[in-house]
């Protein structure tokens, strides 16, 4: 028996979703040809979702805006096939996280050199918290400021190992399923589960006396 979608196709009736997808596909084609209006239209649709994630990843609004901008400008014209708006969203989030990771890596180069010289990967659990910490130990004054709950959580999030941080934010901020996170980050669902568990475990250790 034909499903509703099949019946619609046979009868020539197209769903709203299909029409929207067609429209987005056309916009992407125009973007590839350099059409700024089309770019703006897609950017306005996609940017807020990207920005929410970028803000949590970067911590600073300026950095987040910069990250979203680079993602849109580089990734949208490069997309060769459009296979639905959900896929487009996943594609952009993946592009954003990759750009973010690359930026992070360049920032943390020297710290990782130390990591590699001095420690084995087996030490990773505790070390990852320290090795990826961006800021030095906060001063007393900074600590007082950071007592605001949001700041405390942000601070703890920043101390998470990047892959764990990313998995956690995709789950908590973007409310992605494990499967979506796996697709976005290019790892197995089991790895997503493990990263989430470790991220939460790390957060617990970092926050239980502070919240």
């Amino acid at each position: 028996m034909a499903g509703a979608g099949e019946l619609r196709r046979r009868s020539g009736v197209r769903s709203e979703e299909e029409r929207t997808d067609d429209s987005t596909a056309r916009l992407l084609e125009r973007i590839r040809q350099g059409d700024a209006d089309a770019f703006e239209q897609v950017a306005r649709e996609q940017a807020p979702r990207l920005f929410r994630l970028a803000l949590k990843l970067c911590g600073r609004r300026e950095d987040a805006e910069d990250l979203v901008q680079e993602t849109l400008v580089r990734a949208l014209p490069a997309l060769r096939r459009f296979e639905g708006r959900a896929r487009l969203s996943t594609y952009l989030i993946r592009a954003l996280t990759n750009i973010w990771k690359n930026r992070l890596r360049s920032r943390k180069r020297s710290r990782l050199v130390d990591w590699f010289r001095g420690k084995r990967e087996d030490d990773d659990a505790q070390d990852s918290l320290e090795a990826t910490a961006i800021d030095p130990v906060p001063s007393a004054e900074q600590r007082i400021e950071a007592e605001q709950r949001g700041a405390v959580v942000r601070d703890a999030i920043e101390r998470l190992e990047p892959n764990r941080r990313l998995a956690l934010l995709l789950r908590e901020v973007n409310e992605m399923s494990y499967e979506e996170i796996a697709e976005t980050t290019g790892v197995a669902v089991g790895t997503v589960r493990s990263r989430l568990a470790r991220a939460r475990d790390d957060l617990r250790r970092l926050l239980e006396d502070r919240l």
Partner: peptide
């Protein structure tokens, strides 16, 4: 604690 973190992140 996990729920509070979630709330903070989604806020």
């Amino acid at each position: 604690l996990a729920m509070r973190v979630r709330a903070e992140l989604r806020d």
